[in-house]
């Protein structure tokens, strides 16, 4: 048996002055979430890939030395080379510039679309949950009906009507019913929080309703909202590429990843590399946002807080 050293038998003095001292530094919810996200290697890798893609979309068209709509009849359908890093398309346009220019459009659509639907959904769901009763009932029935309309059919119809050639009208088409999911989620979350004891405690202590909403309801919805935004960004990018693929999206000379893929798909058998880069970008972006969303969900879950 191992001998226990003598000094282990020392008396532990209780110092009454130390009783109020905090053992660990106090950290806020967001600091804690960030600390937990940092330990998640997959999420951080996704974050790095996403940052790279975004940075390249900003500077990519500049560093290639070619304009994205610049036509060069002397170099049509070139494979990737030191001159054209991703090759050229059937009009001799530099694909490196085009892929990053397309990235701007696709990422802007993804982020703006997700933000619009998050804001509209939060306001709608928040109103429904706050007023409750009949208002809630009617508002949620409307959402239920909108929600059961096949999403892409709505998008297609609206893009036919608005003749969506520009970013703005395309965003309208994409977000028209896209906020319904968020509205349902926010309402559910808010109802759940509203019935919790600490809200009741705050009410009995005489805290004003506006302060309850700002201090308690919104921060508690924010975590699920952030997660849902990071999941809906890839969905918007996907829907946009789908629309562009069937010819209802961004029109040339401007482009998006979907439009590039659509153009490349028709001559895929001869020039496979033209599909490879836009396809890779769509897949990487979607994958990164999905994995980042998974990481955020774990990091922002207050029940997992250490």
């Amino acid at each position: 048996m191992e001998a226990i050293p003598k000094d282990k038998f020392r008396r532990v003095e209780i110092d009454s002055k130390e009783a109020e001292k905090m053992a660990r530094p106090q950290i806020s919810y967001w600091q804690d979430a960030w600390r937990r996200l940092k330990t998640n290697k997959v999420a951080i890798l996704s974050l790095i890939i996403l940052s790279l893609i975004i940075i390249m979309s900003i500077i990519g068209p500049i560093i290639s030395g070619y304009e994205y709509e610049e036509v060069d009849p002397k170099s049509l359908n070139q494979p990737p080379s030191s001159e054209h890093w991703f090759g050229t398309d059937e009009l001799g346009r530099d694909l490196f510039s085009r892929v990053w220019q397309a990235g701007r459009v696709s990422i802007i659509i993804g982020i703006t679309g997700a933000l619009i639907s998050a804001i509209v959904g939060t306001i709608y769901g928040g109103i429904a949950a706050y007023f409750g009763g009949k208002v809630d009932n009617i508002m949620m029935r409307i959402v239920e009906i909108l929600y059961s309309i096949p999403y892409l059919l709505v998008v297609i119809l609206v893009s036919i009507v608005t003749d969506s050639k520009s970013l703005g009208s395309m965003l309208i088409a994409l977000t028209l019913t896209g906020w319904c999911g968020t509205a349902r989620m926010v309402r559910g979350q808010m109802l759940q929080i509203k019935s919790q004891e600490y809200i009741m405690a705050a009410e009995t202590l005489g805290v004003k309703p506006s302060k309850i909403i700002i201090r308690h309801l919104i921060p508690n919805v924010l975590n699920v909202l952030i997660v849902s935004i990071s999941f809906s960004i890839p969905n918007y990018i996907f829907s946009e590429s789908f629309l562009s693929f069937i010819g209802l999206g961004i029109q040339p000379p401007n482009t998006s990843w979907g439009a590039l893929a659509s153009a490349a798909q028709q001559k895929f058998i001869f020039y496979p590399y033209q599909l490879f880069f836009p396809g890779l970008m769509i897949a990487l972006t979607m994958l990164s946002f999905t994995l980042l969303g998974d990481g955020l969900r774990d990091a922002l879950d207050p029940r997992l807080r250490e």
Partner: peptide, 11 residues
């Protein structure tokens, strides 16, 4: 599964 979710069907 991840490929199936993230790679668009046209690719």
């Amino acid at each position: 599964a991840i490929l199936g979710v993230t790679v668009p069907s046209f690719i």
